[in-house]
Amino acid sequence: MRKRAKKRTENYKKHVGQIPGTLVYTGKKSDKKLHIESFDYNKEHVEETVLLNIADAIPFKDTDSVTWININGLQYTKEIESIGNQYGLHPLVLEDIVNTAQRPKIDEYDDYLFVVLKMLYYDKDENIVIEQVSFVLGKNYVISFQESEGDVFDIIRERLRLGNGRIRGLKSDYLLYALIDAVVDNYFSIIETLGNKIEDLETELFAGTAREGVNIEIQQLKREILKVRRAIFPLREIISRIEKGEHPLIYKRTITYYRDVYDHLIQVSENIDIYREMIWSLMDMYMTTISNKMNEVMKVLTIMSTIFIPLTFLAGLYGMNFKHIPELNYHNGYFVLLGVMLVMFIALLFYFKRKKWL
Rank of each mutant, 00 (worst) to 15 (best):
L113Y: 09
E37P: 02
Q75L: 03
K244P: 14
V129C: 04
T22S: 15
G195C: 04
Q102V: 09
I128D: 02
E296Q: 13
H247T: 04
H15F: 13
G21P: 11
I106K: 02
V214N: 08
F313V: 15
P91T: 06
I180N: 03
L170I: 09
E147F: 03
G17A: 10
H15I: 13
Y174P: 11
L301F: 05
W280N: 13
S172L: 11
G339H: 11
V184C: 05
Y121A: 00
W68V: 00
I97A: 03
W357N: 09
T312E: 07
E10A: 14
S38T: 14
K299N: 10
H324P: 08
T9G: 11
M278V: 12
K43M: 06
V300C: 05
Y187C: 02
V98S: 03
F114D: 04
P91R: 10
W280A: 15
A101W: 07
K43P: 05
Q75F: 01
I97E: 03
I250G: 11
I190H: 01
T100Y: 03
D260M: 10
V142H: 08
K61F: 05
K293I: 04
N72Y: 03
L358F: 14
I225F: 01
R276P: 01
D111P: 01
H45L: 12
G84M: 07
E237G: 07
L249K: 09
Y174T: 08
T203Q: 13
W280S: 15
L120P: 05
N321S: 10
Y76N: 01
M119D: 01
G163L: 10
Y330A: 15
K293W: 06
D185F: 09
E199M: 08
M320W: 14
K3F: 05
V214M: 12
H264I: 03
F135V: 00
F135C: 00
A5S: 15
K28V: 05
G319F: 08
V228P: 05
H35P: 00
N42A: 14
